[in-house]
Measured scan of single mutants.
Amino acid sequence: MEVRTIKVFTTVDNINLHTQVVDMSMTYGQQFGPTYLDGADVTKIKPHNSHEGKTFYVLPNDDTLRVEAFEYYHTTDPSFLGRYMSALNHTKKWKYPQVNGLTSIKWADNNCYLATALLTLQQIELKFNPPALQDAYYRARAGEAANFCALILAYCNKTVGELGDVRETMSYLFQHANLDSCKRVLNVVCKTCGQQQTTLKGVEAVMYMGTLSYEQFKKGVQIPCTCGKQATKYLVQQESPFVMMSAPPAQYELKHGTFTCASEYTGNYQCGHYKHITSKETLYCIDGALLTKSSEYKGPITDVFYKENSYTTTIK
């Protein structure tokens, strides 16, 4: 009895394709271990004539594949690729409408935090270190965002349907971005203890939790000093293409032309909904596939993004 075979390709990165001759009487799992086709788990399936010449994702289970996976995804987590594939199996079914010149995501599976993050990423200057993220990001900007969303979920250790947080998501993504040249110098002034300067680099240099107003941050924000008295913390120097200011959701007025974009969060910790506000020729609110415009805006804002380049204080 002759062994019926077909020729397929296996890959971990969709760049390096490895030619395989597979036995049609055995499952993919018996031949390769966990195997995925377009995100779908085909591990328990036997090869079919229609699979001839198709590319299958496999887990990096030998040295060659491990090197290829690390170079593309910059992670050695053995569960990463499987999590990416199972997320992709959902995100490829989502709709990605162009809204006001940006790629958004039609609401499904509690994905409003991903839509808000995706919209924000198209408006701030950011370059990702893992080629996987950078490639998928370019495709997302062009309207094909399924891979990018699935990668975000995998890097953030999230599953489809789980509630997510924009600030946490951005923080994970910033860790995989090139923020080497970003720098922030802060000064804390206390009447009792004097003053202390701190220099922050990388992710810490672009994120701040405690106030939404970048102007206020430049002037000074009140913080408790270690001595128990009130101290003032203010920005001395900022070198970065953008800054992200966050605070627990509270009524906040966004003035046209003073910011790049913002995240609105309605609801409580267990259950809520994100919308995205962007400042173009007027203010726009993007909620999944829905767009509304207004000249002014007041609502429960939790993150505001500002364009920056270089700032030095005039406070002496």
Rank of each mutant, 00 (worst) to 15 (best):
S240N: 01
Q196R: 14
R4M: 12
L153F: 09
R4A: 13
V236M: 11
T11N: 07
A289W: 07
W94C: 04
Y36G: 04
Y73D: 05
P97Y: 07
K201W: 15
C271P: 03
V166L: 07
S240Y: 03
Q238H: 05
L200N: 07
T5V: 10
H18M: 06
V160A: 07
L88G: 05
F128T: 03
F242Y: 00
F259Y: 00
K218E: 04
V12Y: 08
S279D: 14
C156F: 02
P60V: 04
P97S: 11
S50E: 15
L290D: 15
A140G: 04
L212V: 11
K201A: 08
A140R: 01
Y57R: 06
D287I: 05
L118C: 02
K219S: 12
Q134F: 06
T260P: 02
A150Q: 04
F217V: 13
G228M: 01
S279C: 08
K95S: 14
N129C: 08
D62T: 11
M209S: 15
G39Q: 09
G299H: 02
K93S: 11
H176V: 07
G267Q: 14
A115L: 05
P300Q: 12
D77R: 04
W107P: 05
C156Y: 02
E162A: 09
I277Y: 02
F32I: 12
I277G: 02
L65Y: 09
E144H: 11
N129M: 07
T76M: 14
N187F: 06
E296H: 15
S25A: 14
K7V: 09
E2G: 10
L186D: 07
Y214G: 01
N16D: 04
S86R: 13
A250N: 11
V166C: 07
G194S: 02
Q175K: 09
F80R: 05
L235I: 10
C112G: 04
A132V: 05
C182G: 09
H51Q: 10
R141V: 11
L133F: 04
K307A: 14
Q237G: 05
T55N: 09
Q230D: 10
Q196L: 09
N110T: 02
L17E: 09
L17R: 11
N147Q: 14
L37K: 11
Y252T: 15
F217N: 01
A146F: 03
L118W: 05
E264H: 04
A117C: 08
Y72Q: 09
Q251M: 14
K219V: 10
Y172F: 09
V243S: 02
T55E: 07
A115H: 02
D109F: 04
D77G: 06
A145N: 03
L254H: 00
G82D: 15
T211M: 09
T91P: 05
Q197D: 07
L173G: 02
C182N: 02
G257I: 00
A205M: 00
T64I: 14
T282N: 11
I315H: 15
A136C: 05
A142V: 13
L291M: 11
N129Y: 07
C190G: 00
N14P: 08
S171K: 14
L254G: 00
A150S: 04
K44R: 13
Q222S: 13
I286N: 00
R141E: 08
F217A: 15
H90V: 12
Y297C: 07
N178Y: 07
N16F: 06
N61W: 14
Y284R: 00
Q195H: 11
T211I: 08
P241E: 07
I315L: 15
G39K: 06
Y284T: 12
F174G: 03
A142K: 15
Y265R: 06
G228K: 04
A247H: 08
N178A: 09
K255M: 11
G220V: 01
K316Q: 15
G272Y: 00
K280E: 10
V42R: 05
E144L: 07
P300Y: 12
L153T: 02
P224C: 10
T226F: 10
H176R: 11
W107A: 06
Y265M: 01
V189I: 11
K106L: 10
E296L: 13
A136E: 14
Y208D: 06
Y36E: 04
A69L: 12
A40I: 13
G267P: 08
Y137M: 10
Y113E: 02
